[in-house]
């Protein structure tokens, strides 16, 4: 089947078998390997990408379901001038260890901050509840999300 969609702001198309998941479409057709295969059945969140503004497990979506929709992946988060505040704060705090869960977690956090610029700790933990991380205990991840939120609010006020 033919799929047309927008990935990180650019229009793309591909021709794939109908059983292809969005995760495989991204990884295999577009070489965007930031979304990871942790379980392939919707349990771990390693494959999280943002579909029309909603953080979604891409292993649970079929290519056909993303026809005409807009996808944000980890690869599109920074630009040539600057990192996304989440990326910077994750790096500064050493929030990620093996990093395998990282792209998914950062995108779940991005959706949270897009919707709620001033989340409290519980709200951050809630937003990340679907993203498993075995290494970090989530502690420095939650801290970095809070720091990034603060930074983004500061930037907005300054602007």
């Amino acid at each position: 089947m033919d799929v047309k969609l927008t990935i990180n702001g650019e229009e793309k198309s591909a021709s794939v078998p109908p059983e292809t998941t969005l995760l495989r479409l991204l990884r295999e057709e577009f070489n965007l390997t930031g979304a990871k295969i942790g379980c392939d059945v919707g349990d771990c969140g390693a494959c999280t990408v943002i579909v029309d503004g909603i953080a979604t497990n891409s292993c649970l979506m079929l290519a056909g379901q993303v026809q005409g929709r807009s996808i944000e992946t980890i690869e599109g988060l920074a630009n040539m001038d600057d990192y996304h505040p989440l990326q910077k704060n994750f790096e500064d705090l050493g929030s990620l260890q093996c990093g395998f869960c990282g792209p998914g977690i950062i995108l779940s956090a991005k959706q949270l901050l897009d919707d709620n610029p001033d989340p409290n700790k519980e709200e951050i933990q809630d937003a990340l509840a679907g993203n498993l991380c075995r290494c970090t205990g989530y502690t420095k991840i939650v801290e970095a999300v809070a720091d990034a939120a603060r930074e983004m609010r500061g930037n907005r006020e300054a602007a």
Partner: peptide, 21 residues
């Protein structure tokens, strides 16, 4: 030093390549 890890940046950018990548 609380030196940050070079791979930490790549993790955040989605640039770290694991075997399946």
């Amino acid at each position: 030093q609380r030196a940050s890890r070079p791979d930490g940046r790549l993790h955040g950018l989605g640039q770290t390549k694991y075997i399946d990548d």
